[in-house]
Design a protein around this nucleic acid. Structure first.
Lengths: 115, 115
DNA sequence: ATTTGATGCAACCTTGCGGTTGCGTGGTCG
DNA sequence: CGACCACGCAACCGCAAGGTTGCATCAAAT
């Protein structure tokens, strides 16, 4: 999909952001409420700082992350609202979401005891 | 993202499929358990039959839809399992999913009475 | 047998994504 | 000030995504 189209398509932007493994990894890393800087990420991952900056930019456009300048570094933090909305879209497709929500809870229970 | 990568990345493939507005529209249309044929879709949407076939192919690669040949036409049907898994991934990112699940339920309740 | 309708396959085109490199800029510390 | 570190911006590259057209194929209807 084209990015300019994704900008005028909130839901699409979120799913587009989640489609990339690197971006999902970043979200998982930020899941605990911590913040990250591009350079720090570049030290851990096999990617350039600029590449990470672009990824964080995509996450930002999707409203999944916020940047905050702090001295000479920029810290990125997760913004979970859009995530919940996306999950809601999935759960509601085609109705019968009551049943699906039940299965979702079951899945979460499994995953909780599993890992 | 590259498609071959998406194939070896189930979660990514699902989100990638959901990133496209047309594909989401198809999923919404199939949400009631009905089935669709590419030509019928091409009559309703401003897209070629082949374009729709490709989209349905992407949905198929993501495991979101199944094709079944029926006489001379091919009917596509929704396969909701992967959708639930994707919602589960979203709900579980970064822990604190109990709270998020609560908000999700609230969102769904709103959407139920709303539309 | 012919014709008509629904597909499948493949080539082709344009645009954007993911990634890099190079350079300019703004804080920080000695 | 001068050196350094973390960024931002822009150009560039390879390749896949989304879309089209054209043609071959298979099933059904007359």
């Amino acid at each position: 999909m084209r990015l300019d189209q994704a900008q005028s398509d909130d839901t699409g932007a979120v799913f587009f952001a989640l489609a990339d493994p690197t971006r999902r990894h970043l979200i998982e890393a930020l899941g605990d409420g911590s913040s990250v800087t591009p350079s720090a990420l570049a030290a851990e991952l096999p990617l350039t700082r600029q590449a990470l900056t672009k990824h964080l930019g995509v996450l930002g456009e999707a409203g999944l992350v916020t940047k905050r300048r702090e001295g000479r570094e920029t810290r990125y933090t997760l913004q979970p609202e859009r995530l919940t909305e996306a999950a809601a879209w999935i759960a509601v497709v085609g109705g019968a979401w009551e049943e699906r929500l039940g299965r979702l809870e079951a899945l979460l229970q499994e995953r909780r005891s599993g890992s």
